[in-house]
Simulated assay, not measured.
Amino acid sequence: MAKKEKGKTSIIVFQDWCKGCGICVEFCPGKVLELDRTSGKALVVHPEECINCGFCELHCPDFAIMLAPKERENPMAAELNCNGGDQ
């Protein structure tokens, strides 16, 4: 199995869409996400540990998570009310 490189992905959590189910938090191999103690919604806490496996994005029932390569500028992150690892 090829080794995945860490820290090359921007993780964006759309807070308005997240219902706090915790699927992304429980199954993330890098422990990149945590549920916020106040809102109960997913937050990006360790973006440097993301290996871009895509599990969070594919399994989020609310489509509240988006992954994008860091090399590419993501205009949506700046315009939307979201929580990203680089912000």
Rank of each mutant, 00 (worst) to 15 (best):
H59F: 14
V44F: 02
G54I: 06
N52I: 03
E57H: 07
A42I: 04
D62M: 12
E57D: 03
V44Y: 02
V45G: 03
H59I: 08
H59L: 13
A68H: 07
V45T: 11
L43I: 14
A68M: 08
P61A: 00
D62H: 13
P47W: 04
M66K: 11
A64K: 00
L67E: 12
L43Y: 10
P47D: 03
I65T: 06
C60P: 07
H59V: 11
G54F: 09
V45D: 00
S39R: 05
L67Q: 10
H46V: 06
E49V: 03
I51V: 15
D62N: 14
P61R: 04
V44N: 02
T38V: 14
C53Q: 00
A68W: 08
P47S: 03
P47N: 00
F55Y: 12
L43W: 10
V44K: 01
A64F: 02
T38F: 11
L43G: 02
C60W: 04
L43T: 12
H46N: 15
T38P: 02
K41I: 13
P61G: 05
E48T: 01
H46E: 10
F55H: 03
A64S: 06
F63H: 13
L43P: 08
V44P: 01
M66E: 09
H59Q: 14
E49N: 15
D62F: 11
M66Q: 09
E57V: 07
A42M: 08
E48Q: 10
G40W: 14
G54N: 05
T38I: 15
H59M: 14
C53W: 01
H46Q: 09
G40H: 14
V45P: 00
C56T: 05
A68N: 06
I65K: 00
H59W: 11
C60Q: 00
P61W: 03
N52H: 11
C56M: 00
L43M: 14
L43F: 13
K41V: 12
P61V: 02
L67S: 07
A42S: 12
V45K: 09
C50E: 07
E48G: 06
C56K: 01
I51Y: 07
F55R: 07
I51R: 11
I65P: 04
N52V: 04
F63C: 10
M66A: 09
V44A: 01
A68K: 09
S39K: 06
H59Y: 13
H46W: 10
A64N: 01
G40A: 15
C50M: 08
A42Q: 08
I65V: 11
I51S: 12
T38S: 13
A64C: 06
P47C: 04
M66I: 09
L67I: 06
N52Q: 08
A42L: 02
E57M: 10
I65Y: 03
A68Y: 02
M66F: 00
E57P: 08
K41A: 04
A64P: 09
A68V: 10
T38H: 12
V44T: 02
C60M: 07
C53D: 10
S39T: 15
A68I: 00
M66L: 13
F55D: 07
C60E: 08
C53G: 01
F63W: 13
P61Q: 05
M66P: 04
I65S: 02
V44Q: 07
C53S: 03
G54Q: 06
H59N: 15
L58C: 11
V44D: 05
